[in-house]
Deep mutational scan, measured.
Amino acid sequence: KLCLVCSDEASGCHYGVLTCGSCKVFFKRAVEGQHNYLCAGRNDCIIDKIRRKNCPACRYRKCLQAGMNLEARKTK
Results as ranks from 00 to 15, higher is better:
Y15T: 09
C6S: 00
E9S: 14
G12P: 03
A72P: 07
C58M: 00
I50D: 10
C58Y: 03
T19E: 00
N69H: 14
K53L: 11
Y37K: 06
F26C: 02
G12K: 07
S7E: 13
D8S: 10
I50C: 07
P56F: 12
K24A: 11
C3M: 01
H35L: 10
Q65D: 14
K62Q: 08
I46V: 10
A57R: 05
L38I: 09
Y60F: 12
R61G: 08
D8I: 02
Y15R: 05
G33I: 06
R59S: 01
I46C: 10
R61I: 07
C45K: 00
R73Q: 08
K53T: 11
L4I: 15
K76H: 06
N54P: 04
K62G: 06
A57E: 05
V25L: 14
L64T: 07
D48N: 14
C58P: 01
Y60R: 03
L38M: 14
C55P: 01
K28A: 08
H35P: 12
L18N: 06
D44K: 08
T75N: 13
S7D: 12
A72K: 15
C58D: 00
T19H: 03
I46F: 15
L64G: 04
F26L: 02
G21I: 07
G21E: 15
A10I: 05
A72D: 11
R59Y: 07
N69W: 08
A66Q: 10
C13V: 13
A30R: 03
C55Q: 01
L4P: 06
N36T: 12
R42C: 08
G21C: 08
L70V: 14
N36I: 09
L64Q: 14
K24I: 04
V25T: 11
L2Q: 14
C63Y: 01
K74N: 12
R51Q: 12
R59Q: 04
G21S: 11
L4E: 14
T75G: 14
D44C: 13
G41K: 13
M68I: 03
A72R: 09
C6G: 00
Q65C: 06
A40C: 05
K62C: 13
Q34K: 10
D48H: 03
L70S: 15
Y60T: 03
N43I: 04
K28P: 04
E32V: 09
R52F: 06
A57L: 02
A10V: 03
L18V: 12
S7H: 14
A57P: 04
G16E: 04
N36P: 09
D44L: 04
C39A: 02
Y15W: 13
A57C: 09
R61L: 12
N36F: 12
L2A: 15
